Amino acid sequence: MKDKLYTIPLTEAFQAEDECPFCYIERKLEQDALNFTLGSSSSYMESDIREQTDEMGFCKEHFKKMYKYGNSLGNALILQTHFRKQNKELTKQLQAFKPEKSSMFGKFKKTKEDGFDKISQWIAQSKETCFVCDHIKNDYDRYLDTFFYLFKSNPEFKELVKHSKGFCIHHFGELTNLVSAKLNDAQAEEYAKLIFPLMIENMNRLEEDINWLVDKYDYRNANADWKNSKDALQRGMQKIKGGYPADTDYQQNR
């Protein structure tokens, strides 16, 4: 199969023999996003990047991963200006607060937005954006498009998919949700004929591994071979929800 630059990461993910190629891609994209945000390129020193991080901020999960990644100075510089902006916005919201007097019935049934609502809505909106999440999503969506492009146009890619371990349920859902928009009726039928049996086969395979992992704790199987069950716990968790529960913290290369 002849790869183009934009198809290489996707084909590499399928060749990795992972429980889910899109988990593999998502992890790589997240690592790339952390490297871009805090790594040796020092993007956080660029004024346009700092404007974006100040505006978008970070979700709780990625704040934690940024801390674990390392680079205390880079984190501090990013936090310094983002914190300043958040503090300024919070002060503005609180100083603009005007309590609304409500009737006895109004306490039970709100008919309009009050000052408390405005503050809580501002806080809720500030939690909806994350620079790292956004960085990942932009590239991830392109890989979803690339999957369907190759599925429609490249028989070798379909063979690669056929001999993969399928997908985690989360990413299988994402792909299947796009079928109607990305494929015509004949292609959608082909997708179902290829992917659905692949999912059943690999879910059954993994269920057998998990069953044997449990059976290995029976004293009667103490000397029996582990077969493929030693890492069945983390692979099973991944297959159900996605991600890599056994991963260690991703850290900056020094």
Rank of each mutant, 00 (worst) to 15 (best):
L5N: 09
L10N: 03
E12Q: 11
Q15V: 02
D18Y: 03
E19T: 11
C20I: 05
C23R: 05
Q31F: 14
Q31K: 15
D32N: 15
S40Q: 14
S42E: 15
Y44K: 07
Y44E: 04
Y44G: 03
D48F: 15
R50H: 08
E51P: 00
E51S: 14
D54M: 12
E55V: 05
M56D: 07
F58A: 10
G70P: 07
L77C: 09
L79I: 11
L79N: 12
L79S: 15
L79H: 09
T81F: 11
H82S: 13
Q86I: 10
Q86C: 13
Q93N: 14
L94K: 07
P99H: 14
P99G: 07
S102F: 10
M104V: 14
M104Q: 12
K109Q: 12
K110N: 10
T111W: 08
E113L: 09
D114K: 06
I119S: 01
S120Y: 09
K127D: 03
C130S: 04
D134K: 13
N138F: 11
R142Y: 01
D145R: 03
T146R: 12
T146D: 07
F148R: 00
L150H: 00
S153L: 02
N154H: 07
E156S: 10
I169P: 00
H170G: 00
H171R: 07
S180Q: 13
K182S: 08
L183S: 01
Q187D: 11
E190K: 03
A192T: 10
K193P: 01
K193D: 14
L194Y: 06
I195W: 04
I195N: 01
P197Q: 09
L198D: 10
E201Y: 10
N202C: 09
W212N: 02
V214Y: 09
V214H: 04
V214T: 04
V214L: 11
D215W: 05
Y219A: 11
R220P: 00
A224G: 02
D225T: 09
K227E: 15
N228P: 02
N228V: 03
K230E: 14
Q234Y: 04
G236V: 04
G236C: 05
M237L: 14
P245M: 09
T248P: 05
R254D: 11
